[in-house]
Design a protein around this nucleic acid. Structure first.
Lengths: 339, 339
DNA sequence: TTGTATGCGTTATCAT
DNA sequence: ATGATAACGCATACAA
């Protein structure tokens, strides 16, 4: 447990600590033989540099904080893996926190990370988050922050987003091409701009094909299986049954699909389903769910790169928004069998 | 970005830094008015204590490292949430790393965390891990380490494990009671003791019911969907078809189930399936998969508690192994319809 | 009750 | 080329 320090090495070799330090940071002059001597001794004694001390001195922790709203779906873990890949290469550690979609925990997580002197933050909001004062302060404090996917439009930071509008448009159009007429949209949490963009895509696809979309076709839901369950039950009770559903999240689509299936509806013949976000689950439910796939790993990598650039470039930072593209994975949940 | 320090406050108020320090750690004598004065000023100046400096001084980081082999399934995230819950309450931060089931990355993660002076580690092994020298050294270095689920038997540390033997036994017995005769076991990675225990449970359940289990019924596989795919394809090619499959992991079961389904086998009438670990996926595949549920959150909480106890109790630490229990969720993948 | 001084493990700036 | 020393921000033993 007792860590070996450069001081111990110095004592052992009758050298000054500064000399030992130099042996490890070869920016300074040091005689090659001395260096070898020190390096050997260090290995022998099992010396490991203490990054905490170095961080204290250099006023940076080499830690990056990441704040995500949940952990269970495959989306965020994949983003994190992508970010981790880039950050580790640059010597940064990743401190991961998740809020269970709870605004209060989210704020606590941010404060906790801030206090731990992370050099930057990568954030995706909980869908409870309405009050953004805290984030405004965070950003104006000067700490580099990157938002991804669930972002705050008006905040002046770099962002990595998905072209939600475009892909919601395509997904809806896919249903229209299959000749579905009464298409409902299970919308995401109202305060997320991503949800609004998906709604716009849904509407404009209809517009392009000169189809009507009454507001009643846009049903506020959420992102969970239970949201899908609930909404589907309501439709059945109200005898207001669509012939296709485009959900803002895979899990909602899956929840709704299960309910309709249980009630004897044939999928996709009577009701088609399209989801969004390509959870692992989508490929494995029955029938497999058509879904918009987001480049999860790439989102993470991009956010990490932006963050590193901003950190190493303090002062002259121009916020930029990078929009990534995806693809529509068409599966049997939305393919009308050719008759 | 420029952080306010106690020094700044001291200068501002014409007090000594130690007095400021005392105001925040109320173990020491300080006049209440002085304390109030300082606290107010501190708030006004936006002071935030710097944990890095404190850690350096106290030789502890209040960080716990966690090393897991993967991230995508719901099992490990749930364990982490459980651990996080306990650790946060005690003021610890959680540094999460994952290795993608790669031994090399796993070791790197451990070293990285060690260098960052974590106060303890919670580890579950990658299934590539065979060489345990590194972990032996780690443990004998005195750093508190808790293993969970994928543990190293011979290592003298505290462990949180699941009663794999018992539940494999029950799962197998469930199939036997349903009158399945030719039951195959898709075994987990050979170097994990958990895999061995599940095999033993499988065998002994047969023994209890005086059934024969040729070794050929135990098929080495892994934990992924692809493993299940592969193994199922082999069975079909060899025309060696079981009437039930008990897999050491849900994903393997799901992979195999899909292949057999695609080849026209009726589930569970012709082949029954039972998995292990209760991934979210299990409830949502078709048919829903019978699976042994592990108390994921509880595993995390227990590991965290053991670790904290060990950290705060340096020196007199008696390694203990806590075995948690689970339950068998019986779903239609293994329920022979009553004729 | 408050101030002074020291040290945690490093790096950087001097001087030697 | 190497040594001495001051920082980084904080906590604490000791002096006042």
């Amino acid at each position: 447990m007792k860590h070996v320090t450069i001081k111990d090495i110095a004592k052992e070799l009758n050298l000054a600590v500064s000399t030992i330090s130099r042996a490890f940071n070869d920016k300074y002059d040091i005689r090659p033989e001395t260096k070898q001597l020190i390096l050997n001794k260090a290995r022998e004694m099992g010396y490991r540099p203490n990054p905490i001390a170095r961080n204290l001195l250099q006023q940076r922790s080499m830690n990056i904080g990441i704040v995500i709203p949940e952990f269970i779906g495959s989306f965020f873990p994949e983003v994190i893996i992508g970010a981790q890949e880039v950050l580790f290469k640059e010597g940064y550690q990743l401190l991961i926190t998740q809020s269970n979609e709870c605004y209060k925990t989210e704020i606590e997580n941010v404060k906790l990370l801030e206090r731990n002197m992370v050099d930057g933050l990568i954030i995706s909001l909980s869908h409870q988050t309405k009050n953004i004062e805290c984030f405004k302060e965070l950003v104006s404090s000067g700490l580099p922050v990157i938002f991804f996917n669930r972002v705050i439009d008006i905040l002046n930071t770099s962002k990595v987003v998905f072209d939600d509008y475009k892909w919601a448009f395509f997904a809806t159009e896919h249903l229209i091409y299959q000749n579905y007429k009464k298409i409902f949209h299970l919308a995401g949490p109202a305060n997320l701009s991503l949800a609004k963009n998906r709604i716009r895509g849904f509407q404009n696809a209809h517009k392009k094909h000169r189809l009507d979309v009454p507001d009643s076709h846009i049903i506020p839901s959420g992102f969970t299986i239970e949201d899908g369950d609930r909404v589907a039950m309501e439709m059945i009770e109200n005898k207001n049954i669509p012939d296709a559903i485009f959900a803002a999240g895979d899990l909602t689509a899956i929840g709704a699909m299960k309910v309709f299936k249980r009630h004897g509806y044939k999928i996709p013949e009577e009701i088609a389903f399209v989801g969004f976000s390509e959870q692992t689950l989508a490929r494995h439910v029955d029938p497999p769910l058509t879904s918009v796939a987001q480049p999860t790993f790439e989102i993470g990598r991009t956010a990490a790169k932006l963050l590193i650039a901003q950190i190493e470039n303090q002062g002259v930072h121009i916020p930029q928004t990078i929009t990534l593209s995806g693809k529509l994975n068409i599966r049997s949940s939305s393919m009308k069998l050719t008759k």
